[in-house]
Structure formats: structure tokens, C-alpha cells
Computed example of a mutant assay.
Amino acid sequence: MDLAGRRISDVLLMRDAGPYEFSRATWEINLGCDFDCVMCYLGEKRFEGLDMDGKRKLLAVMRDAGVIWLQITGGEPLIDPHFREAYRLAHELGMQVEVLSNGSRLHKHHMLNLLRTYPPTKLTLSMYGATAETYDAVTRRRGAYERFAAGLQNAVAAGLNVDLSLIIVRGNAHEADAMRDWARSLGLRFREYANISPTIHGTAETLPQQSPEYLTHRQPFTGCPAGVTFFHSDPFGRASICKVGREPNIDLIAEGVEGLARLGGIAESLMLRTGGCSGCELSGTCRVCRPMAKVFQEAKAPLGNYCQHGMR
């Protein structure tokens, strides 16, 4: 390593290993958002969460737990009043940070300067259309398209590692090809999402927004690292196995790293098949995890949205 006259401590951070096997985490820094997308799984998007002291404690717990990769999401994370300080602290604690954003704040110089100074490992931006009329209708915010387009252009020009998530719903499906062309014209990687989930509150008002011709069949669920090497934190520092299986959860602010010792047991309990899924003859090739199936069941969603029996 060429240190160019610098001390090794200026370029290399050594961290102690965590007591468990957690290396990845996601953090909803705040559920508030400046968009009001028709298909948003968050439902009511409240501006609430930890103050900055609480955020510092939570990030310290994540560091002590061994988290190396941290995904900061929301709501819209860039509108959180403490985002800049929390993001910079995560970097200083030695985490590789991915930010999930709608891009609406990237046209602001102070935000772009922050990300240019402390480049995210990945900046994943959601795209909701290819024209102002469609974009503003899907997000239910006038001017959303202009803010996104300006922010996207700024992020690309700044050399940030941008990924795009193309969210395809009834209201923008006619622009799917134009969305793909836009991403390709910028030389950006993109993935498409068309399978919409119920809200985290167990309601189904989001599901009619799905565009039937773009729905995809998920691969059979064969397990995941949720609650084992990965965990999720909500805006109050409550850790759960993932953003779908939110309960039971662990208050990391009150319990610290030691509380995570219970997460593996919670994961095992949430993966047990119960109710209508117990004894299912197709369980070996089920395409959704048990927590996701439960969300669909609570929302009284059509069986075809999540279960093979509804596809027969």
C-alpha cells in the first residue's frame, strides 16, 4: 500500500470482531418521506425516530456488533435532519454504507458535497417514470420528476456508484421501456421491481397498483440470513430480523449488543409455518418466506399474490 507519506492510521481502520456473526444491517433512519407513492409499503409515513444522541448510540452498537455493511434507508433518508452527521459517523466507524433514496435531495449542493467527500459504497435510487406527468402522478408530488432528474444527473456527474431501481406499477408501466433506455443512456446498472407488498401495517391498499403483465414468479424460498448474519433496525433502534418480520424486536438502545443474542431464536420462530401454511403439500417450493406470507394473509390479499395454491 502506497501511503504517500501518510501514517497507516490515516488510511486503515482496525476494528475488533463482533461477539456474534452479524456483518450486515439495514437502518430505517426515519419513515418520513417527501413523496407519497401510490404503492409504498410503509403506509402512513411518520416523521419520528431517535434524536442525534440516540443515533450515535445505535451506530456504536452496530459497530460493536460487527456490522461492516450498512444500508441506510427510510422513508427518504436524505430528508432526516440528522442524516449528514449520522452518515459521516457511519463512515468514520468503518462501515461500507449503501444509501437507498428517491434522489430528490441530490440537486442540493451540500448533500452532493457530503456524498462526494464520503462516497457511499453504493447509491441506489428509485425511478418511478420517464416523464414529468407520469412521475409526479405515481409519487403524488408536483415537481418530483424535475428534482429526481436533476439529482440523478448530479450523482452521475460526481462519479458516485449509482444503481437504479425501476419501480413498475400500473401508473407507469407504459413507460417501462423509456425507463430502461434512460438508465442505459447513463451507463447505469438497474433492476426492476413490479411485485408489490402489503403495507407494514397489514393492509392491502398497495396491491391494486401492481401491473399484471410485469409481475414475476419468485424463485423458491430456500432460506436467508435474516436474524443470523443480518438484522434490521427501525427509526427507534428496535432490531428485528428484517423489515418484514418486525416483531418481536429488540431495543438496541436499552439492551446494547447483548440483546442481539436473542435474534437467532426469533428468526427460527418466525420461519415456522403456522395457520393455513402448516402441513402444506407445496411448502418445499414456496416462493415467499413465512414472515412475508403472514403479511399477505393479514392483509387478506388474493392467494395468487403469494401462494402457489392460488396459481393453480
Score class of each variant (00 low, 15 high):
residue 46 R to P: 02
residue 149 A to L: 02
residue 184 R to N: 13
residue 31 L to Y: 15
residue 42 L to H: 09
residue 245 G to L: 03
residue 157 A to V: 08
residue 177 D to C: 03
residue 121 T to D: 10
residue 99 V to A: 10
residue 98 E to C: 10
residue 128 Y to T: 02
residue 117 T to C: 03
residue 209 Q to T: 15
residue 92 E to G: 06
residue 59 L to K: 02
residue 141 R to H: 07
residue 234 D to S: 08
residue 308 Q to K: 13
residue 212 P to W: 05
residue 117 T to N: 02
residue 57 K to E: 08
residue 306 Y to S: 10
residue 38 V to N: 06
residue 12 L to W: 12
residue 52 M to P: 04
residue 205 E to I: 07
residue 67 V to R: 08
residue 23 S to M: 10
residue 112 L to V: 08
residue 25 A to R: 09
residue 38 V to L: 07
residue 283 S to Y: 07
residue 139 T to I: 03
residue 296 F to I: 01
residue 48 E to C: 06
residue 100 L to W: 11
residue 53 D to Q: 13
residue 199 T to K: 11
residue 3 L to P: 00
residue 114 L to K: 07
residue 17 A to V: 11
residue 16 D to Q: 14
residue 162 V to E: 02
residue 285 T to G: 03
residue 172 N to V: 07
residue 129 G to P: 01
residue 89 L to K: 12
residue 101 S to P: 01
residue 298 E to F: 05
residue 280 C to N: 03
residue 85 E to S: 12
residue 41 Y to N: 04
residue 270 L to H: 00
residue 200 I to G: 12
residue 38 V to F: 02
residue 153 Q to S: 15
residue 175 E to S: 02
residue 167 I to C: 12
residue 103 G to Y: 00
residue 251 D to R: 04
residue 194 A to P: 05
residue 34 D to P: 03
residue 126 S to N: 11
residue 142 R to V: 13
residue 13 L to R: 13
residue 85 E to M: 06
residue 121 T to Y: 13
residue 211 S to I: 03
residue 57 K to A: 14
residue 288 V to P: 02
residue 254 A to P: 05
residue 129 G to R: 02
residue 213 E to I: 04
residue 216 T to A: 11
residue 302 P to F: 01
residue 234 D to W: 04
residue 168 I to V: 15
residue 73 T to I: 14
residue 95 M to S: 10
residue 139 T to A: 14
residue 95 M to I: 05
residue 192 E to M: 15
residue 166 L to T: 09
residue 10 D to P: 06
residue 305 N to W: 10
residue 132 A to Y: 00
residue 111 M to N: 08
residue 5 G to V: 02
residue 279 G to C: 13
residue 39 M to I: 02
residue 46 R to I: 14
residue 209 Q to I: 01
residue 46 R to N: 12
residue 45 K to L: 01
residue 158 A to C: 11
